[in-house]
Design a protein around this nucleic acid. Structure first.
Lengths: 221, 221
DNA sequence: CCGATATGTTTGAGTCGTCAAACTTTCGAC
DNA sequence: GTCGAAAGTTTGACGACTCAAACATATCGG
C-alpha cells in the first residue's frame, strides 16, 4: 500500500491532469498542490517513477502509469465518497468537507469505504459535482464546459465546482449556485474580465472570468 | 497538537493504568501495546516527559501528568465515539470496529467529533461498554468487577468487555454476551482454572478464568 | 545473600519526508 | 540569437520514528 504522502502526490498529479488535459502536470504545480518545495517534489516524483507509478522525463512533464492512475483514482474515490457522506449523513456544509476528507481519506479501510458507498446508494458525484471513480478505478468525467466560455443569454445548469476553497463555496451557496441549479448569463464585460450571472429565482451577481472558469456547466434548457 | 505517534503512546499509558490501577505502566508493557521495541519506548517516553505529558523516574514506572491525561482521554474519546458511530450508524459488527477506529481516531477534527457526539445523542459508553470521556476529559469509570471474581450462583449483568480482539468479541456475541446482557455463574472449576456461565436464555459455556477476567460485570438481579 | 532473568537504557544506524541553497536546463522576450 | 527569469535538479542537513544490540539495573527464586 502506498504511503499517505505518495497518495497525496498521486492525487495531485491526477487532478492536475484532469484540470487541464492539454498540458501534463509539472513539478512546480505538483509541489504547489502538495505544499512542498520544488526540490522535494522532484525527489518524490523520482520515487514514484522508481515504483512504477509515474513516468517523467528529465526536465519534462509528469504522467501517471496505469497503475499510478488506478491508485490515484482510488484515493479520489475515497475522498469523494467521504465528502458525500459528511454532507448527506452528517449535515456538513459543502464548504467544510474538503479538509475533513483530506485527512480521513488516508484512514478508511476498503471495508468501511464499501459500507459508505452502499449507505449512500452508490452515488455518481460528490457534493461539488466531481465524479466518484468506481471501485475498478473507472472515472466518468461528464462533459461540461467552463461557465466563462458561455455566451450572453445562455441558460446553463451547474455541473461542477472546481475551486473548493471554503470561501468560494460559501459564496457560491449563498447565491444558490450549487450543482444542478440553473442560471443564465445576462452580460459579459470583456474589458473588466467579468460576467454577470443570474441564478434561477435569485438576484444576479458579477463574477470574474477567472472565477467563472472554475465553474463547469451543462448547456441548460 | 501531539503527533499521531505521541497520541498512541498516551493512549497506551492511560489504558494500561486503567487496566490495573495497582501498578503503574511499565516500559515493556507500553512497548508491547504500541508495538515497538523497549528501546524505542524508552526514548519516546523521554520525549513525553520532556514535553510535560508524562512523568517517569529512571528504572521506575510511567504516569501521565494532568495535561498528559487530558490529551490521552481526548484520544480515547475520539476512539470510542468512532466505534460507537460505526456500530450504530454503519451497522458494523462490534468485532470489526477497533482497528477501524485505531486509524480514524487520528484523522477526525474536533468539529467532526462533536457532530458525531451529537448525532449519537452523547453516548456514555461505546459498544464494548468502555466509558466515553467527556469533552473536558472527565472519565466516569463505572464500578464493575471481573466476572472471574464472581461466586457460583451469582447473577450478573455484563458491563464491559476488556479484551477487544476480534476473535474474542465474535465468540462473546455468539453466546449472547454483550454489554447489558444477563448471565449466571453456574459452576467454578478451580483446578481447571475455568468457570461455567449461562447467559440468560442461552446454553451455558465454559470460560477460562483468564478470559473471565477480561469481562467486567455488575452484580445482577 | 546471590545469581539468573526480566526489565530498562543507551548507542549507532537506517528510513521517510522535508527544507534551503546551489546549481542546471529550458524558454520566451527582446 | 542571446540573456534572464522560470522551472527542474542536486546536495547536505535535519527531525521524527524506528530497530538491533550492547549495556545497566532490578528483582525473584532458591
Amino acid at each position: 500500500m502506498a504511503t499517505e504522502t505518495v497518495e497525496n502526490y498521486l492525487k495531485a498529479i491526477m487532478t492536475l491532469a484532469a484540470e487541464s488535459p492539454t498540458r501534463e502536470a509539472t513539478v512546480s504545480r505538483i509541489a504547489a498542490v502538495v505544499g512542498v518545495t520544488r526540490g522535494t517534489a522532484t525527489s518524490m516524483i523520482k520515487k514514484l517513477t522508481a515504483g512504477g507509478l509515474a513516468r517523467a522525463e528529465r526536465y519534462g512533464g509528469v504522467t501517471l502509469t496505469s497503475s499510478g492512475r488506478r491508485a490515484a483514482s482510488d484515493v479520489l474515490r475515497r475522498h469523494r465518497l467521504i465528502e458525500t457522506f459528511l454532507v448527506r449523513a452528517l449535515k456538513f456544509d459543502w464548504s467544510e468537507v474538503h479538509e475533513e476528507a483530506e485527512r480521513l481519506e488516508h484512514a478508511v479501510s476498503p471495508r468501511l469505504l464499501e459500507r459508505l458507498d452502499e449507505f449512500l446508494g452508490h452515488p455518481a458525484c460528490d457534493p461539488h459535482g466531481d465524479p466518484i471513480p468506481g471501485r475498478a478505478g473507472v472515472v466518468i468525467e461528464p462533459a461540461a464546459k467552463p461557465l466563462s466560455s458561455c455566451k450572453v443569454g445562455a441558460v446553463v445548469r451547474i455541473a461542477r465546482v472546481i475551486d473548493q476553497s471554503a470561501a468560494f463555496l460559501r459564496f457560491m451557496a449563498q447565491h444558490g449556485l450549487k450543482p444542478d441549479a440553473k442560471a443564465k448569463v445576462v452580460a459579459l464585460h470583456a474589458p473588466a474580465q467579468s460576467m454577470e450571472v443570474e441564478p434561477h429565482g435569485r438576484t444576479k451577481l458579477v463574477l470574474a472570468l477567472a472565477a467563472a472558469e472554475k465553474i463547469l456547466v451543462h448547456a441548460g434548457r
